[in-house]
Nucleic acid binder design. Sequence first.
DNA 1: GATCCTCTATCTATCAGTTGATAGAGAATC
DNA 2: GATTCTCTATCAACTGATAGATAGAGGATC
Lengths: 187, 187
Amino acid sequence: MGSNVREEVMAAAKRAAQSHGYTGLNFRELAAEVGIKSATIHYYFPTKVDLGAAIAKRYWEDSQVLLDSLWNGGNDPARALMEYPNTFRVSLEQDNRICLCSFMSAEHDDLPDPVKREVSAFADINIAWLTRVLSAATDMDTAASERRARAIFAAVAGAQLMARSRSDISVFDALIDSYREAGLLPG
Amino acid sequence: MGSNVREEVMAAAKRAAQSHGYTGLNFRELAAEVGIKSATIHYYFPTKVDLGAAIAKRYWEDSQVLLDSLWNGGNDPARALMEYPNTFRVSLEQDNRICLCSFMSAEHDDLPDPVKREVSAFADINIAWLTRVLSAATDMDTAASERRARAIFAAVAGAQLMARSRSDISVFDALIDSYREAGLLPG
DNA sequence: GATCCTCTATCTATCAGTTGATAGAGAATC
DNA sequence: GATTCTCTATCAACTGATAGATAGAGGATC
């Protein structure tokens, strides 16, 4: 298994990036939070690019596992769809953080390519999952499901961003309700 | 009238912040782009906070003027609503930039209070305008119009963010189409 | 069992580059 | 001549990164 320190650094880096972005990540603060020296981080992640790519990759891998646990061909796709916005809500619950990849999407111009690739993968797996669930839960064909999947993903990310800017999770809840009222989200 | 230099600094700072955020703003690059020395910027904007707040304020003021030119009680609110997403599209057309305030919303935790206030104002004036237009263009009551206004604002911002992450403006267009297809946007 | 070697993991110390900010001199404008 | 504007020079803080020392674990060799 991987060392504890490596895992602790990744966990702290993930949290920091959700609050301050890739640009805002810095070795000394990270090290202080884990209780080590910044040079030690370089032992596990030679460069900042390596660290950034590692946490973005881990982020979408964890998301994939979570989504599959929510629905993976079972018998209640409509319920999974109802639950989907909650996967974004939890970030806001944790000190008003947002999706790592939403933040990094804003930072796109300053992102090294290896990090960009992992950020794209997060969107890909979310959209692919939503497409599958929508196809199972509604009578939309695959093309329509994918269009709707992209729309839902973008809209939920936008709702999370707005809620953060107000430091108010009820803004997120209200927006999700409005999406349902408008017909973007089923339910 | 304000000096040319001051205006040029603000224009360059606005563009930079739309690409790199408030954190990514820096006096030396800004000065180089305008063709002056960084110390000169401090003459017009004593601190970075002053500069950040000034460009965010100008940003929503300009947006207010643009929206009012699009619709201000005239006879075609439905058309204004159709045009609304274009006010976000133009940023992407300019080197894949995004809304200054979307970027700064992501940076919320690292934003000085005076800047935060102006960022909030941008959302406020967009939502207020959308609420008025929706009330005029549809049979929704004021409360429903405001809920929908918030939903549209958040969703369009999300679409812009997704398009940036792919460096592909057609992603934005497709998302807006999908919002219409889903019923979030009229048309 | 004592000595030697290697690898892992962490540290101290330091470098070079960047950044926001300031003091004070000089130039331009009125 | 006073005011406005811009520059040079510099500071202190911060940042990613590197070099090199150290401590300990685990084998291999004698």
